[in-house]
């Protein structure tokens, strides 16, 4: 039984790492601040969700429930799920108020 749970957990962990690296590559290669907001915010949120699901599966199998590891992971996941899009939105809104002009096709990369 343990091998099945660990296989599913490993799938989630690998997928989360791939999404995290994809977000990093997007943050390097996107041409503009607002497009970078897109990949940084979404990549962060999805990567943490996938990795926390994988770690919850590992904790269910490896540690007793009285260790509270599952509940802590759940609360970390919910907290980041709320705050990461909020922070990204606040940064993008601040840039818009500051007068940063969005990039259009044909403009030079910034």
């Amino acid at each position: 039984m343990a091998i099945v749970v660990y296989s599913i957990a490993g799938l989630f962990l690998g997928l989360g790492a791939v999404v995290a690296i994809t977000g990093g590559v997007g943050a390097i290669r996107m041409p503009d601040f607002y497009t970078r907001c897109h990949c940084a915010g979404k990549g962060d949120t999805l990567a943490q969700l996938l990795i926390m699901v994988g770690l919850i599966l590992v904790a269910l199998e490896a540690y007793p429930l009285s260790n509270l590891a599952v509940f802590k992971l759940f609360f970390i996941s919910i907290f980041i799920l709320v705050t990461s899009p909020t922070a990204t939105h606040a940064v993008a809104r601040g840039a818009r108020h500051d007068g940063l002009v969005p990039w259009k096709a044909g403009d030079p990369r910034r």
């Binding site: 995290a20 601040f33 990795i51 970390i76 922070a87 940064v91």
Partner: peptide, 25 residues
């Protein structure tokens, strides 16, 4: 711009949370 830096450091902080959790395991 400084907003790029703030956004990147926010993402690094989230990644650090994941890193600490993973290292604990």
């Amino acid at each position: 711009t400084s907003y790029d830096r703030i956004l990147a450091m926010n993402a690094v902080g989230t990644k650090t949370v994941i890193l600490v959790a993973l290292l604990g395991f």
